[in-house]
Design a protein around this nucleic acid. Structure first.
Lengths: 190, 190
DNA sequence: GTATCCATGTAACCAGTTACATGATTGC
DNA sequence: GCAATCATGTAACTGGTTACATGGATAC
């Protein structure tokens, strides 16, 4: 259950908010929820077909001039029930794989400078995304609309997660760089 | 490159520290680095075979009385080079999938109480692992040996990562629960 | 005239999970 | 007598990625 079918539920949730095509779903992932969720076309399209067969969504072909025709999907009653069922189930902790941490474990094999460079790069990356999160937060503070949005506390909590996570990782990178430098210095002293 | 062959490098790193069997490798993952890395037998054994064919490790059969015989693997020069090569390469950011955050995005479909229960559960889980991390940290402070261990700054940084991450997530759960409660209260007021 | 956006899909591939099979030894 | 630990492996599966194929419309 931990490793099953997450794409399906992501699609159900997105289509429940607003019917749309596979392309729309992908766009939705890449913009709104990109920092904690991703999907790609090669998976979305076949899963949509399967979901239609299972009766959790229905397809309507939409034709308009000057544009390719779209397959617009709508969530069904059955689909909505499946979605709610999933939402009600507790999240099972899925084992993570943190490549940076794994590399650190074996880092004695390479020069400290290399590791420090890498930590600096990672830190910069988190700083960039933190800036972006902060920008979105400001935009949100300046908009009255946003605060009346039904899902606002959930949406904003996710943003706060992104901010807090980035802040923590930046601090950790700094702390780790200092630790490595310090230990390298006293090692040379001996 | 982002999604390729991580098991292979994990195995190389572990065998570089100490030769061992597939069983040993699994144990190593489940104890030392479990909170940021996982492997399972169904993957380890076939990958070991492939790595032997590629000449990055060699096998020696070890027989002893009263125990099943073990296939003990040793890293080769070629394997060590491959490991160092991987360590020197920058980590590419791999898109994450945070199920809790995805669920929060669609949480308006279920009663707030359910979401709060879930956040409490998650918070408790992180509190438990934080306790464990703190215990390990204390154990480490009380041991002089550990601090002379060559990889100590790396190992300790990883522990600090676990601690900081757990602390952040606990705070976030608390903050999120408060936010949801608050918004639910003013919604009822209207 | 070139890049980007809109739009859908398939095929090949691979990493990783789960379940199954086997069997000895040790500790409670 | 039963559970846990030591020990290796295979088979079936599946979730997800990457690359490929196609093609019109729009914006710079």
């Amino acid at each position: 259950m931990a490793n099953v079918n997450k794409t399906r539920f992501a699609i159900l949730g997105i289509l429940n908010n607003m019917p749309g095509s596979g392309y729309d779903i992908k766009k939705n992932c890449d913009t709104g929820i990109a920092y904690f969720w991703n999907e790609n076309f090669g998976h979305i399209y076949p899963v949509l077909k399967q979901m239609e067969r299972d009766g959790v969504i229905t397809k309507k072909e939409e034709k308009s001039e000057g544009r390719p025709s779209r397959n617009v999907y709508y969530i069904t009653e059955k689909g909505k029930n499946e979605l709610i069922d999933w939402l009600m189930r507790p999240v099972e902790p899925s084992p993570q794989r943190l490549e940076l941490q794994l590399k650190l474990t074996f880092a004695k094999l390479i020069p400290v400078e290399k590791t420090i460079e890498e930590l600096e790069r990672v830190k910069e990356r988190h700083k960039k995304s933190l800036e972006e999160f902060r920008r979105v937060e400001q935009e949100f503070f300046n908009s009255e609309d946003a605060q009346n949005y039904e899902s606002y506390p959930y949406w904003y909590s996710n943003l706060r997660y992104g901010i807090g996570d980035a802040e923590f990782r930046i601090r950790w990178c700094e702390e780790t760089i200092e630790r490595i430098k310090f230990h390298n210095a006293i090692k040379k002293d001996k």
